[in-house]
Simulated scan of single mutants.
Amino acid sequence: MNRKIKLLWDFRGPDSGETARHHALHLSEFIKREKLPLLLSGHQTINEMHAVAYMVVEESMMIQIRDALLPHRGEVYEENPG
C-alpha cells in the first residue's frame, strides 16, 4: 500500500483563514486541470492567526506535485479509523 502525503501551505496573520480558503480554491482548480487522482484537499483554521490549505496525494506523486506547487511542508497522512 502506498503511503499518503499531506502537502501543506501555511498562512499567518489576521487574514490567514480567508487566504487559506482562497488558496484551496486554486488547489482544486489545479487538481481538475491536471486530472489528478486526489484523495482530499481543503483548508483549515488552526487559530485566528494561522490557517493552512492542504492536499493529500499518493507518495508516488508527491515529488511531481511538490515541484509544481511548492508547498511549505508535508507530513505523512493517516486516515482516522472509523
Rank of each mutant, 00 (worst) to 15 (best):
N2M: 09
K4C: 11
L8M: 13
G13K: 00
P14Y: 07
D15R: 05
G17L: 08
G17S: 15
G17N: 12
E18Y: 15
T19G: 01
A20C: 12
A20K: 07
R21Y: 14
A24S: 14
A24V: 05
A24K: 00
A24C: 08
L27M: 03
S28M: 14
S28G: 14
E29N: 12
E29I: 13
I31N: 02
R33L: 09
E34Q: 09
L36W: 06
L38R: 06
L40N: 09
S41R: 10
Q44N: 06
T45C: 07
T45H: 12
I46V: 06
N47C: 08
N47W: 02
E48A: 01
E48F: 04
E48K: 15
E48I: 02
M49S: 07
H50M: 02
A51C: 12
A51D: 00
V52F: 04
V52K: 05
A53G: 05
M55I: 11
M55C: 05
E58H: 08
E58I: 03
E59R: 07
M61S: 08
M61F: 02
M61G: 00
I63P: 01
I65W: 02
L69H: 03
L69A: 06
L70C: 10
L70S: 13
P71T: 09
G74A: 03
Y77H: 12
E78T: 09
E79G: 04
E79T: 04
P81I: 14
P81C: 03
P81S: 05
G82T: 01
G82P: 10
G82Y: 10
